[in-house]
Amino acid sequence: MGRRDIRAVPGPRASRARPPAGTTAYDHGWAGDLRFAVRCALTLLGLLLAVDATAGHLAAPRGLLWTGLAALLLMVLVPPRIRAGAGWLSCRGLVRERIVRTDRLVSVRWSDGVSQRLVLRDAEGGRVEVDPQVLVANPALWHRLDDDARACVKRGTLRCGVTVLRQLADRIDRRTARTVFTISGLE
């Protein structure tokens, strides 16, 4: 796939564009996080049904209510699926997939809120929020993003967020060094 195969429509439609074939990096912990979310939802459902049955109040409407509550917990806990390739990064949630052109980044920033998020924006209006821990835990994703971001800095398109990327790179380097020291027994 060449670069011209990656087309994003400006504005809100950019989030509906499909990533091209050729995923080179993805979140390796996603499947485990998904299994954890399913186990939590099933455990909650089982506990609620058991308590209701023990109390003698279990009926079809209550069972549907508990099933709906467990489904809601599952929807909240299911992590987004992060994938990347040459010139793009996608974040697929339960409802839709958002794509950002990493070869055309214009800004990278930390989002304010309860959990840290890295917000990436491209020239076509694409916007993706990524948990920085996903990048820290998956070096291939980080290297894919870092390579494209460095190219954007050289071209002058990425003007906002160079410091953020440097801070994230430092965090990843510290973790990598700590892992190497731990494995080699030097820590």
Rank of each mutant, 00 (worst) to 15 (best):
L65H: 07
Y26S: 04
V114G: 01
V100S: 02
P12H: 02
A60Y: 15
V164M: 04
A70Y: 06
V153Q: 08
D173A: 15
P19N: 14
G63W: 04
L120Q: 02
T43M: 07
P139H: 11
E124T: 14
L49H: 07
C91P: 00
G46W: 06
G93K: 07
R101D: 10
L45H: 14
S184M: 08
F181L: 08
I6E: 01
R109G: 02
T23W: 05
R155L: 07
R18M: 11
W142D: 05
L49C: 15
G87W: 01
A50R: 02
Q116P: 04
R83Q: 14
C152F: 12
R178Y: 11
S115I: 03
D148I: 13
A71F: 13
A59G: 05
L65S: 06
R3A: 11
G56S: 08
A149I: 07
P19I: 12
G87T: 06
C152N: 11
A137R: 13
L118F: 09
R92W: 13
L141E: 02
T163N: 03
L45T: 01
L49M: 12
A31S: 14
G87F: 03
V153Y: 06
R175Q: 14
R13G: 07
A59I: 12
L58C: 04
R117I: 07
L45I: 10
L141C: 04
A151D: 09
L158N: 01
S115G: 03
A137Y: 08
W30P: 02
R104M: 08
R104V: 06
C152Y: 09
L165H: 14
W88N: 00
V130T: 05
R7C: 07
L105P: 00
L135V: 03
V128Q: 00
L73R: 05
R16G: 03
G11T: 02
R92H: 09
T102W: 08
L105S: 03
G126W: 10
G126M: 14
V136M: 03
E129G: 11
L44I: 12
C160T: 09
R98P: 00
L158P: 00
G161T: 09
R104S: 08
L58W: 12
D148G: 04
L34Q: 09
W30D: 01
V38P: 02
D131E: 10
S111M: 10
A17F: 04
R7V: 15
A25K: 05
S107C: 02
A14G: 11
V180A: 12
V136Y: 05
A70S: 11
P139N: 02
G32P: 00
A140Q: 15
R178E: 15
R117Y: 10
Q167T: 05
T43C: 06
W110A: 01
A84W: 09
H57I: 05
R121S: 12
V130N: 02
D33M: 10
H57E: 12
L168D: 03
L186G: 10
V76D: 01
D27T: 05
R3W: 05
D173F: 08
G85Q: 10
Y26Q: 09
G32I: 03
I183V: 15
S184G: 04
Y26G: 15
G161C: 09
D112T: 13
Q133C: 04
G156N: 06
V130K: 02
G113Y: 11
P80F: 06
